[in-house]
Amino acid sequence: MRILLIEDDLEMAGFIAEGLAAQGHTALIASEGREGLRRAQSENCDVLIVDRMLPDMDGADLVLQMRNLGLSEPILLLTSLGAIEDRVKGLGSGADDYLVKPFAMAELSARIDALGRRGRGGLGDTAACGTIKLDRVRREVWREGQRIVLQPREFELLEQLVRQQDQVVSRAMLLEQVWHFHFDPQTNIVETHMSRLRQKMNAGFEVDPIVTVRGVGYKLRSDV
């Protein structure tokens, strides 16, 4: 997996990166919150590891910013703060797991592997629906052998449709699964991204595999 580590302690970052590399993972390192946020948005990572005590911001606040921006990757918070209220704040910000320092590398690796499986949602590294194929590791998409370049949110929308192909996926489900909104923000964010996804998926093709179920949501056909 590609793992973004946001940690300002260079010795600790090196220790973690070395341990992850020994497990076959690729570790990308950011030493500040702002840098980490930028890389989280631009890099295709499977899991994010965020230190709670960053020099420019609280790691929990950084996680909250990531979730508000629609980043859906599983996040593990690392911290020396082990009090219950600190754990509650960390998890409440949108983190998926919380590990208190000092820790054993074996435990961190086990938690990262679990988060990686959770992030894949039960799909393998590749998935398909009809003539559409997804590489979930490289974040690449093909239709009838033609590669289609998608933005991260467009890829995640398609991924959710592939996951539930031939079934109607409601707008509310997409808001929760892709943007982690547990409420309706009263915007057309789903419609806008779906329109862009369709334009890219249908360029050069006659049939649109994405069906709009008016008033409900969308369905991806497996017979196209």
Rank of each mutant, 00 (worst) to 15 (best):
D166A: 10
G33I: 06
L5N: 00
H193R: 04
D96Y: 02
G121A: 01
R171C: 00
G119D: 01
R138M: 12
L54K: 01
W179D: 04
M53V: 08
D9V: 03
E7P: 08
L5P: 15
K89C: 03
E191D: 07
L175K: 12
M105W: 06
E73A: 12
R214T: 14
I29S: 02
Q41R: 11
Q165F: 05
I148S: 09
E43T: 13
M53Y: 11
C129L: 14
G145L: 03
M173E: 15
Q160G: 02
V100T: 02
V162W: 08
C45R: 05
C45L: 10
K101V: 08
T192G: 00
Q199Y: 10
A203P: 14
N202K: 01
R196T: 02
L62I: 13
R39C: 05
L134M: 10
D96M: 09
G33D: 00
Q167G: 10
G204K: 08
V63L: 01
I75H: 00
D135N: 14
E191T: 10
L108F: 15
A30L: 04
R111E: 02
L76F: 01
A127R: 08
P185T: 04
E35K: 11
Q167R: 13
G92T: 11
T187C: 05
D208C: 13
V63P: 09
E191P: 01
L71V: 12
R198P: 04
L28A: 06
S31K: 03
R221S: 13
L28S: 10
I16C: 05
R111H: 06
M66D: 09
T79N: 05
E73Y: 07
R198E: 07
E206T: 14
F183A: 09
V178P: 08
A95S: 14
L175I: 15
R38Y: 13
I16R: 14
R198Y: 06
A13C: 09
A95K: 14
P185V: 12
E11W: 04
P152T: 04
L161T: 05
L78H: 06
K133G: 03
D86T: 07
D9K: 03
R120W: 07
L4Q: 07
L158W: 07
P185Y: 01
L48P: 15
T26D: 01
Y218M: 02
Y218C: 09
Q164T: 01
L37E: 10
I84T: 13
R139K: 13
L175N: 13
V141A: 03
